[in-house]
């Protein structure tokens, strides 16, 4: 009965501490699957147009009329910029709640009072204990279709973002490239809400 209401409670003694070492977290970061995007050359304006799907629900409903409304297009002068833009602005696919009964981070069972939510950056299902709040400007605008002020992010993505920022600040080339290879780092959005640091 307790399990149905509150989910499995972590035993306090065997609860492993969250370590912020490089190896322990890079394995637990789930690479995001992006919604389809396209890059075409528009001859009328002589520019490259990157088109991005913004809504996963409408895309899955296979309604052509509706899905064309959910598209967003950006035009840039070169092909490379358009490719980068499409990759950076295509939102991630959210994992369905039905096939993920456990929290991705702490692996406790979801229940009536332990609700699941999605990480807006990578799409995994997590419980509210493992969620970190970010100001919405830290994500590209297409990620935030509900236009919330504060979005929920899993701890792995939060760690990844701060580690990437530190790698940049220390000028650590190899580490920055390695962290970017996990594909969950946003390069076009600012790092926000960092206290005590004057930039």
């Amino acid at each position: 009965m307790m399990d149905i209401l509150f989910g499995t409670i972590r035993p306090i003694l065997s609860c492993k501490p969250i370590s912020f070492e490089m190896d322990s977290f890079t394995t637990s970061v789930s690479p995001r699957t992006l919604l389809p995007s396209s890059v075409i050359f528009s001859e009328a304006t002589e520019s490259w147009v990157a088109t991005v799907n913004t809504s996963q629900k409408i895309l899955d409903s296979k309604n052509v009329e509706e899905s064309s409304k959910a598209l967003r297009a950006f035009s840039v002068p070169t092909k490379k910029q358009a490719m980068c833009l499409a990759r950076a602005w295509a939102p991630p696919r959210m994992y369905p709640f039905s096939s993920n009964p456990k929290c991705f981070i702490c692996e406790t069972q979801f229940a009536v009072f332990r609700r699941a939510c999605h990480c807006r950056n990578c799409g995994v299902c997590m419980c509210s204990v493992c969620a970190v709040q970010w100001p919405s400007k830290m994500l590209p605008a297409t990620y935030n279709i509900k236009s919330e002020d504060v979005v929920k992010i899993c701890r792995a993505c939060d760690w990844l973002c701060s580690a990437f920022r530190l790698a940049l600040l220390h000028g650590d080339y190899d580490k920055a490239i390695a962290l970017h290879a996990t594909e969950n780092v946003n390069l076009t959005t600012p790092f926000a809400n960092i206290k005590g640091e004057v930039l």
């Binding site: 600012p190 926000a192 809400n193 960092i194 004057v198 930039l199």
Partner: peptide, 16 residues
């Protein structure tokens, strides 16, 4: 109040 900076700013500050 949040102090925000873009990745490029951090890279410049890192000096690499």
């Amino acid at each position: 109040v949040c102090y925000d900076s873009y990745p490029v700013h951090c890279a410049v500050l890192g000096g690499n």
